[in-house]
């Protein structure tokens, strides 16, 4: 039995596939691919499949990760080509690795955000200059008010016509996850001018001390 970590893109129409549906979608894709997937034993056997980090509905990604377990040896190139032959529009496997890090090692993720609106760059700067940015976070325990400001690492902000393009690093993983749309929602509320979210794209997943999750 061998474990493989598959890095895949989830873009375009595929951003509307919820996390729960993505699991079912991948199970079916692997079944179509003919790869020898390992099934759990027991009363209701199911295909072993693990997603270390969920992606929220509507956000696209270049770096999604899925772990699979095969009962027979298969080369990374065979796994890639078999999967890509059967994946739906918007899902595309880009790399197969041997898992190095564990799910609980994930600490942050980087996003590229494209917003449309009038004169957004100065507004964004004012937004970040606030001492605190209070936002409501829905958790299992109920609604919690948190301060987003220390959690946002803004790496880049660039105006292009009426677009504002941001590179943001936010906490991710089991220890505390910030959905990128929480930041854009808070910004919209702050700006008091119509802001249209063109695109939310996850670009990287990190472990502690800024090392890429691998």
């Amino acid at each position: 039995m061998t474990d493989h970590r598959i890095v895949f893109e989830k873009t375009g129409r595929a951003r509307f596939i919820s996390h729960l549906d993505l699991n079912r979608c991948m199970v079916r894709a692997i079944r179509r691919s003919g790869l020898p997937a390992w099934y759990t034993e027991g009363f209701h056997p199911h295909m072993y499949l693990m997603f270390p980090l969920a992606l929220s509905l509507g956000t696209e990604s270049l770096c999604e990760v899925m772990d699979i377990r095969l009962t027979e040896e298969r080369s990374p190139s065979e796994i890639l080509s078999r999967l890509n032959a059967v994946l739906p529009e918007g899902l595309h496997a880009v790399e197969v690795r041997t898992p190095q890090d564990r799910t609980q090692d994930i600490e942050a993720a980087e996003y590229r955000v494209t917003l449309t609106g009038e004169a957004l760059l100065p507004l964004w700067e004012q937004f970040l200059a606030q001492p605190e940015i209070l936002a409501e976070k829905r958790t299992k325990k109920g609604v919690q008010t948190i301060d987003l400001r220390p959690l946002i690492e803004a790496e880049e902000a660039q105006a292009e016509g009426d677009h504002l393009i941001l590179a943001l690093r936010l906490p991710a993983g089991n220890a505390g996850n910030i959905n990128v749309s929480m930041v854009t929602d808070a910004f919209s509320e702050f700006a008091e001018t119509p802001i249209y979210v063109e695109k939310l794209l996850r670009t990287k997943i990190f472990c502690g001390n800024g090392r890429l999750f691998s």
Partner: peptide, 20 residues
């Protein structure tokens, strides 16, 4: 269509693009 689907429940009902 793409710009409004996040406003509704179960957007994958409305976007097409499925296998098959």
């Amino acid at each position: 269509i793409g710009s409004v689907l996040l406003e509704v429940q179960r957007p994958s009902r409305y976007c097409g693009g499925e296998v098959g």
